[in-house]
Design a protein around this nucleic acid. Structure first.
Lengths: 266, 266
DNA sequence: ACCTGAACACCGTTCAAGT
DNA sequence: ACCTGAACACCGTTCAAGT
């Protein structure tokens, strides 16, 4: 019976759980003085550059190799598969987050900063949310981000057994919201349409086809799943984020009082 | 200068905004009596079946055609591109949601049901979250889902100008949480590993490499971004969902009092 | 140790042709 | 109106070979 590790490794659940097969020969950061020639750092940086410039759909190993002035198969000396490369690029993006320090500010300010930073990189790099949805996203920089949130929640007074629950609120929220924003921007850019024009078309479609959302019910006014401009989008994000923070505070108090969860309707 | 609609249509931002080019010849539901031969309904159903059985990565137009007992290019008579087909499959999945009725229960129960249903289909069909992250997801069934949430939030007493904000909390949360769960299950299934084994490996990796999450800080205890079993995962989802509901209630009251958002730290 | 070139088994999609 | 078959321009990856 094979060990769990060998099973996980063989199936490549994630490079962060199994280690990179070629990573032991040469580390992530190149030795000093190796200015010319390839190294993994240069490859990952070129990957991120291409992903930003042309999108996930246009990234091929051949295209990347051309960008590096090299043959397609050269990259495979540093990386086993394209998936592995994309996991590295994903975690590289999380290095961009400006995390709250150990001591800076109260927990509310820290969680606000984290959420805004998360949203920022998801919108700035639309490929990040798609890769985060494809891989486990447990690389060191992503984990540092989770650890920072965990510290803030502990500081908030959330009991230990509720920490994973709190993390399960904050990150899915910022990931979902930011990812949708990034993807919409990417789609509209590719279409040569502004986001406002896209939203207008959405509303017009609903008005022209009132049967559109039936069954079970007509939608009036139009549910805003698309943004009506950046200001509205920002307002929605801030409102939802304040709900998150208020909800965490309320649940902290509720758990402390050992009261069963009940919210008075209406 | 081209109209917005023609620009949007030409670039295929979404079939739901532009209409399907071939959809006017033949509707989504086939006429009665056309039992043999292809129709769009059969094609979408076969697509969903294949996506469930083999995953998004293994779905090709040739594979789908073989499943339908037909040539690859036959499908293209009913559909312009693979993207269009996947948008149809995506919305088809949202038809599975058991939505709360117009009258059933209070708003808290309705939103709980919506979130649980959303999570359920995301876990049952791991491809749904990846497609929802790739396309706009504004098809009729997805919109009916948003409309139901909007009704519940209005019933909760959330003012009109806060409705989009509330929707921007609930759906990104359930999407992010459910999508991660579905993807993990898919990865582990493909690897022949249980989710518990995968989590154990994750913890072991962190313990073996204490430098893993540095900088900026060591992580202790391990932040649980992976589930330690279904019960824990359920507890986390329920806790986070109660935060969402408590947060919505708190913000409703706060907006009603016209008080600026402030939460007492610690 | 590092990189190349040819080849394999695929893709989505176009196009002319069939019935 | 509906479906086919050949072809085009790609993919990720393997493998033997170069230096």
């Amino acid at each position: 019976m094979a060990s769990v590790r060998s099973k996980v490794r063989g199936a490549r659940v994630s490079i962060w759980l199994t280690g990179r097969a070629k990573g032991r020969r040469r580390g992530y950061a190149p030795a000093v003085g190796e200015a010319d020639g390839l190294d993994l750092g240069k490859i990952v940086e070129a990957t991120v550059r291409l992903l930003d410039a042309e999108g996930l759909g246009r990234l091929s190993m051949r295209r990347l190799a051309a960008e590096l002035g090299v043959t397609a198969m050269s990259v495979y000396w540093y990386v086993d598969t394209k998936d592995e490369l994309l996991e590295l690029a994903l975690d590289h993006a999380y290095a961009e987050l400006d995390l709250p320090g150990e001591d800076g500010g109260d927990w509310v300010a820290q969680l606000r900063q984290l959420a805004h930073e998360h949203r920022r990189i998801l919108v700035a790099h639309p490929w990040v949310s798609r890769l985060a949805g494809e891989y486990l996203n447990v690389g060191p920089h992503a984990m540092a981000c989770v650890a920072a949130a965990q510290r803030a929640m502990r500081r908030a007074g959330l009991p230990e057994e509720a920490l994973t629950g709190g993390l399960s609120l904050l990150f899915p929220f910022s990931y979902g919201f930011g990812g949708a924003g990034g993807r919409l921007a990417e789609l509209c850019r590719a279409a040569g349409v502004t986001e406002d024009e896209c939203y207008g078309e959405f509303v017009r479609t609903l008005r022209e086809h009132p049967e559109y959302v039936q069954p079970p019910a007509a939608v009036d006014p139009v549910p805003a799943v698309l943004p009506a401009g950046h200001e509205q989008r920002d307002r929605d994000f801030n409102f939802a984020l304040e709900c998150v923070l208020a909800g965490l505070a309320a649940m902290r108090d509720r758990v402390a009082e050992q009261v069963r969860p009940t919210i008075t309707p209406a």
